[in-house]
Design a protein around this nucleic acid. Structure first.
Ligand SMILES: NC(=O)c1ccc[n+]([C@@H]2O[C@H](COP(=O)([O-])OP(=O)(O)OC[C@H]3O[C@@H](n4cnc5c(N)ncnc54)[C@H](O)[C@@H]3O)[C@@H](O)[C@H]2O)c1
Ligand SMILES: NC(=O)c1ccc[n+]([C@@H]2O[C@H](COP(=O)([O-])OP(=O)(O)OC[C@H]3O[C@@H](n4cnc5c(N)ncnc54)[C@H](O)[C@@H]3O)[C@@H](O)[C@H]2O)c1
Lengths: 210, 210
DNA sequence: ATCATATTGTTCTCCTTGTCACAATATAAA
DNA sequence: TTTATATTGTGACAAGGAGAACAATATGAT
């Protein structure tokens, strides 16, 4: 189910590109090609979410985009904070693409005084202000980009403060209390996966994608 | 199958931590707890890869680590280049964790002259030198961290130069020639997934993880 | 030495998810 | 209008992986 939800994000991106190119309708096959899945998956996804097309002319891009926005309405109306503004954290903090989904990072936190910057576009604050900022902004999502040894304590703190969803970049498994959901992005694992695919004999069949 | 391979990386990390803590043997349950899977999965993974334990005392950490290294031997002996040294690219370039797996980034490339730095720890070079560097270092893996509109042409170029595996961070689906494997990391999709989990009613059952 | 028990290795089942197939149907052409 | 056809919507099917269960067995205790 979460895969379907996540694919909506990919569909939206592809549809916006097509719309910007002046196209009004898409077939499941065309959208599949653009977003990297299969026509069957597109149709079933749309079917599950009640997005309807026309038996011949495909799906109306504007209508589908509107439908996706409606579905993700409540999902994307959540504040996001980021903990750990180092190499990776800063990159995420500066990234504009998230706000396209409505999910904008409202503040960053870091223990290193040298990283504090209260006037930043998203400000970077000391962790002592997490409690205040989270309750003031009503943030419910957090990104963890601290070193691995600090990740679990960071999660504990965030969970106490009412954070309900966490995207964790530290390459460790975190233990979360019931009701707090953790999703891991482990780039080492991803790179290793690519390396394995690349090491396969040339004639091997394809079965990847993410 | 690729999931099993990728989990090996997670197992290795957990085992190294346990080893550093002075522990000599692990049970499937303990390792599962540490690396975020289940005991059955650990046992089946190890079984598939021929990593054996003892019917009672669990698995010997050193032996398993050695086994994993052997399995990933050929996989990790590949050079990696990075194209697009912006916010995200720089973070990846500076990250030391990859070399722990043997996969070290040997060079970065960027079109922006201001980013060129030939004396960097991994140097940042103009794309014109890609051909030379890739053939000299024998790199077979690439990371794409360029803006979305430049991703496809970057892939085409890399594929021509013999790159066999690509980790793509641009939020677009790329078309690769046969024999070149692409794996996408779409952080927008990941964050949206977390947001969806967080928006679920509190009592909902768990079914996540990555 | 014998026994009790913890833990592996493997099989089997279930569940999820993508693929296939095809009937339903709207559109365009003749 | 009638017919041909492209494309959706959905039901059935298959593949794969995770989880559960259990027999095999090595270890430690008595
Ligand atoms: N940089 C990458 O490309 C990359 C790749 C894969 C994984 N990761 C993982 O992402 C995480 C961050 O990586 P990085 O390269 O940005 O590391 P980094 O050391 O550059 O940044 C970590 C930041 O976290 C801050 N910090 C430390 N403890 C903290 C705490 N308790 N609360 C708040 N802030 C704290 C530090 O001051 C620092 O600024 C690490 O777990 C790393 O393993 C990074
Ligand atoms: N920064 C993030 O946190 C983040 C998050 C999600 C996705 N992404 C994706 O990752 C990619 C990079 O993001 P970013 O924030 O680093 O962007 P960025 O603009 O900071 O960096 C892009 C870099 O690529 C270089 N570049 C452009 N065209 C090039 C080409 N043809 N060859 C070589 N280099 C080229 C640019 O000079 C620039 O330095 C984008 O596709 C973005 O959508 C980034």
């Amino acid at each position: 189910m979460i895969d379907r939800i996540q694919r909506l994000t990919a569909y939206r991106r592809s549809l916006e590109r097509l719309k910007a190119a002046g196209i009004l309708r898409v077939t499941s096959g065309l959208l599949a090609e653009a977003s990297g899945t299969s026509a069957s998956v597109v149709r079933k996804d749309f079917s599950v979410f009640g997005l309807q097309g026309k038996r011949r002319g495909g799906y109306g891009i504007s209508e589908v985009l509107e439908g996706i926005s409606t579905i993700l309405e409540g999902v994307s109306r959540q504040g996001v904070v980021l903990v750990g503004c180092g190499n990776l954290g800063q990159a995420l903090l500066r990234y504009a693409g998230f706000s396209g989904d409505g999910l904008a990072i409202t503040a960053g936190f870091d223990t290193d005084p040298a990283r504090i910057n209260r006037r930043g576009k998203p400000p970077i604050l000391p962790p002592g202000e997490m409690s205040r900022v989270i309750s003031e902004t009503g943030a419910t999502i957090a990104i963890i980009a601290v070193p691995d040894f600090a990740a679990q304590e960071t999660l504990n703190r965030l969970a106490e403060l009412g954070i309900r969803g966490i995207l964790n970049f530290a390459p460790v498994h975190l233990h979360a209390p019931a009701g707090t959901h953790v999703r891991n992005v482990n780039l080492e694992m991803e790179l290793e996966g690519v390396a394995w695919l690349a090491s396969l004999p040339a004639g091997a069949p394809d079965k990847e994608d993410a």
